Amino acid sequence: MTRSIAWQDGVIEAVDQCALPHEFRLLRLRTVDEVIDAIQRLAIRGAPAIGVAGALAVAQSARAHTRDAVCDELAVRAEAQRIADARPTAVNLSWAVRRVLGVLGGGPDAVLAEALQILVEDEERNRSAAGHAADLVLRLCGRKPLRLLTHCNTGRLATVAWGTALGAIRVLAEAGQVDEVLFGETRPLLQGARLTAWELAEAGIPHRMLVDSAGPAALAAGMVDCVLVGADRVCANGDVANKIGTYSLALAASRARVPFVVVAPESTLDTSLASGADIVIEERAASEVTGYGGLAVAPAGTGAFNPAFDVTPAELVTAVVTESGLFHPQETLGELAS
């Protein structure tokens, strides 16, 4: 399986990201409830990936609620809302659900065709965005073995294939332009330690892991030429929501005068929101922080502030790169595109 998500005879097949790195296995999801559960427990994660999974889940719903060629659209729309609400911060999920609902009047075959089109487009768009981002990094940093820093997981596991920020790193590595990739472990669920490390090893790219709080220290020490991250939502003013810990890297990159580049498909852009202040930030269970793998690491009754994402202000972002090139409202970034 070269793609992280696929459709097989009414079943959604997806790489189980909770099992990695110790086991590579596929989930076979047959119902909307199973898809929602996989998204909420992060067995399927990454903004583009959950968007595709959500679209395919609506296709499953449309099939399940069609009898004698008549589709119960109210039932499908109700399930679609549950899918869209599974993770509120990543706009790709609600975007994909809305897109397939737009053809619901054509019946379940039309919904499935649209969902499969989103799946195909995701790989194409991410490859294009990764290529544009790699070109920008070379313009900003020069052609040399680059020392790159990334956060969370933005590779083929977080998308249908190839990846966004990690996809750009793969492009640079294939061109012989990467010396080393540093990446945060990504507390509390360790997407960096479990998934990014697995993908970098798979691709044969030199890498070292940092505890999340060491990223700013690496930037201050001059160990990084460019920071590359993904996004779960980009607002009209260029504010970026991404995995918790991104904001501190952006602050440190700004202080160190290191480019901070966001790579994401256009489905991540949400121009309906004026700024990051309007983004709903998902907060997850305290147990993810107070324990891990079933083992308690904090005293019983310890509370936790556990936001899954933070917001990086636009002024700290060098560029947001999509499949179409640069997106950013700041006039200074127009110079980068020339």
Rank of each mutant, 00 (worst) to 15 (best):
V240G: 05
A241F: 04
N242A: 12
K243L: 06
K243H: 06
K243W: 05
I244A: 13
I244C: 06
I244M: 05
I244Q: 04
G245Y: 03
G245K: 00
Y247K: 11
S248Q: 09
L249Q: 01
L249T: 04
L249S: 05
A250E: 00
L251Y: 10
A253H: 03
A253R: 01
S254Y: 00
S254N: 07
S254L: 01
R255F: 05
A256C: 03
A256F: 04
R257F: 04
R257N: 10
V258N: 02
P259T: 11
P259L: 02
V262M: 05
V263E: 06
V263G: 03
A264F: 06
A264G: 08
A264I: 05
P265Q: 00
E266S: 15
E266T: 15
S267H: 14
T268N: 07
T268I: 05
D270H: 12
D270N: 15
D270V: 09
D270R: 07
T271Y: 01
T271E: 14
S272C: 14
L273F: 07
L273H: 03
L273Q: 15
A274I: 07
S275C: 15
S275T: 15
G276C: 10
D278E: 15
D278G: 13
I281F: 02
E282F: 11
E283Y: 08
E283P: 09
E283K: 14
R284K: 06
R284M: 07
A285D: 13
A286T: 00
A286H: 06
A286V: 12
S287G: 05
S287W: 04
E288M: 03
E288G: 06
E288C: 03
V289G: 01
V289W: 02
T290M: 02
G291P: 00
G291R: 03
G291E: 03
G291C: 01
Y292L: 15
Y292E: 10
G293D: 12
L295K: 11
L295Q: 09
A296W: 05
A296K: 13
V297A: 10
A298F: 12
P299E: 00
P299V: 04
P299W: 09
A300S: 08
A300G: 07
G301M: 05
T302N: 09
G303W: 06
G303H: 11
G303V: 11
A304N: 05
F305E: 04
F305H: 13
N306W: 09
P307W: 09
P307A: 09
A308E: 01
F309C: 11
F309N: 01
F309K: 08
D310Y: 10
V311L: 10
T312P: 11
T312S: 14
T312R: 03
P313A: 11
P313S: 04
A314T: 14
E315N: 13
E315G: 12
E315P: 14
L316Q: 11
V317K: 00
V317E: 02
T318G: 08
T318A: 10
A319E: 00
V320A: 09
T322E: 07
G325V: 04
G325F: 08
G325L: 04
F327Q: 00
F327V: 06
H328A: 15
P329L: 10
P329D: 06
Q330A: 15
Q330L: 15
E331S: 14
E331K: 12
E331A: 15
T332G: 13
L333G: 13
L333C: 12
L333F: 04
L333P: 01
G334A: 14
G334L: 15
G334V: 07
E335W: 12
E335P: 00
A337G: 04
A337Q: 13
A337P: 09
S338I: 02
S338M: 09
S338V: 10
